[in-house]
Design a protein around this nucleic acid. Structure first.
Length: 350
DNA sequence: AATCCGGGGAC
DNA sequence: GTCCCAGGATT
């Protein structure tokens, strides 16, 4: 088994300097970083973590804040169920008087799965457990030359990874040891072209010895993504503000703001089907040229856009925001519709 | 076990 | 274009 001390020595010399590593073991800050880092790159999280903390400096502030504020702060980060669970988790933590300090206790909270429970337990509370993230999966699969494909191989990889923590050097510094594994996977044992020559665990890496390390871990084939289409509506009032509505609390972009529109489906929309979805169907809607394109995890989306100005009549239900405020509060998908409108000169903004 | 859930950066 | 990212919830 590769020596934990070799990895920790390497970590002490080469570890990444990251905002959430600033000598704090505040579980709130560790937890927030781990949730933001779920399927999200370190580079993307850095500034967002700092901005989030400035607005919600502690778990009590977050728990007491309205959802609309949390949604606005999370806009653009993706996977919005994380924000909903984050909000619910903060309220649960306040209700129980603080964060649980064990992996099992953390695992009970909303938005905290096997990985995040282990990561917070190890980093914030010094528990001896290895979180199995994409980095640890890759490092472990290569060290042990595991050729079984993910996700089926995950239980086996997890059992192997837990053994790293049994060494006294690792047990003396659990949080540092797991972050050393992250850094090894993020800077040396990377998916493509790993830098095996400078790896502190080169000796004892069976994947490297057998020459298959760069091809691991193997993964099951992925499904093709269908193309869906929708038509959205940009309604402007006399002051140049635009109408947004809030999506249902669960599902795709759940709880986030959007431009009103048709549902998204694979069958193209016929002209006769579209008007009932407009905020004011009787208005004269001008169709803009082009489409906004956005890729989701499991389908590709093309959105057309129609524009109208609100006459002196009853305004439909929704929220009226300036283009600047709308852009700040909208998920990336909807920001692309504003881009389309702006390029057509249909928007008053700076 | 399979599917749903964003967005961006590296290649 | 493809792949990946400090994954979780639901079915």
């Amino acid at each position: 088994m590769p020596a934990a001390s070799l990895l920790l020595d390497w970590y002490d010399r080469h570890r990444r300097t990251l905002p959430w590593r600033e000598a704090t073991r505040d579980p709130y800050r560790i937890w927030l970083s781990e949730v933001m880092l779920q399927q999200t790159t370190v580079a993307a999280v850095g500034p967002r973590w700092l901005r989030f903390l400035a607005r919600f400096p502690d778990v009590g502030t977050l728990a007491a804040s309205p959802w609309a504020d949390v949604a606005e702060e999370w806009a653009g980060l993706g996977y919005y169920a994380r924000a909903r669970n984050l909000h619910a988790c903060a309220q649960a933590v306040v209700a129980r008087g603080g964060f649980p300090t064990t992996e099992a206790g953390l695992r009970e909270l909303p938005g905290i799965g096997a990985y995040t429970a282990a990561a917070v337990a190890a980093i914030a509370f010094g528990r001896e457990v290895v979180p199995l993230d994409g980095n640890v999966e890759r490092v472990t699969a290569r060290l042990a030359a595991i050729e079984d494909p993910l996700p089926g191989a995950r239980p086996r990889l997890n059992r192997l990874a837990q053994h790293w923590m049994e060494q006294p050097a690792a047990r003396a510094r659990p949080g540092d040891f797991v972050q050393a594994l992250f850094d090894l996977g993020a800077t040396i044992c990377v998916p493509r072209n790993p830098a095996c020559a400078i790896c502190p665990w080169l000796q004892g890496c069976e994947g490297q010895r057998s020459g298959i390390a760069p091809t691991l871990p193997r993964k099951a084939a992925k499904k093709a993504r269908p193309l869906k289409r929708g038509v959205h509506f940009l309604l402007l009032d006399g002051a140049g503000r635009l109408l947004l509505r809030r999506r249902p609390p669960t599902g795709l972009l759940g709880g986030m703001l959007e431009l009103p529109g048709t549902p998204w489906r694979e069958t193209p929309w016929t002209e006769a089907e579209i008007p009932p979805f407009a905020p004011l169907p009787g208005l004269t809607w001008r169709a803009l040229d082009g489409e906004a394109k956005h890729g989701f995890t499991h389908f590709e989306l093309h959105m057309a856009l129609r524009v109208a100005t609100l006459p002196n009549s009853d305004a439909p239900d929704g929220e009226w925001l300036t283009p600047q405020a709308a852009r700040a509060a909208l998920p990336g998908t909807m920001q692309k519709l504003l881009d389309l409108a702006a390029s057509a000169g249909a928007l008053r903004e700076g």
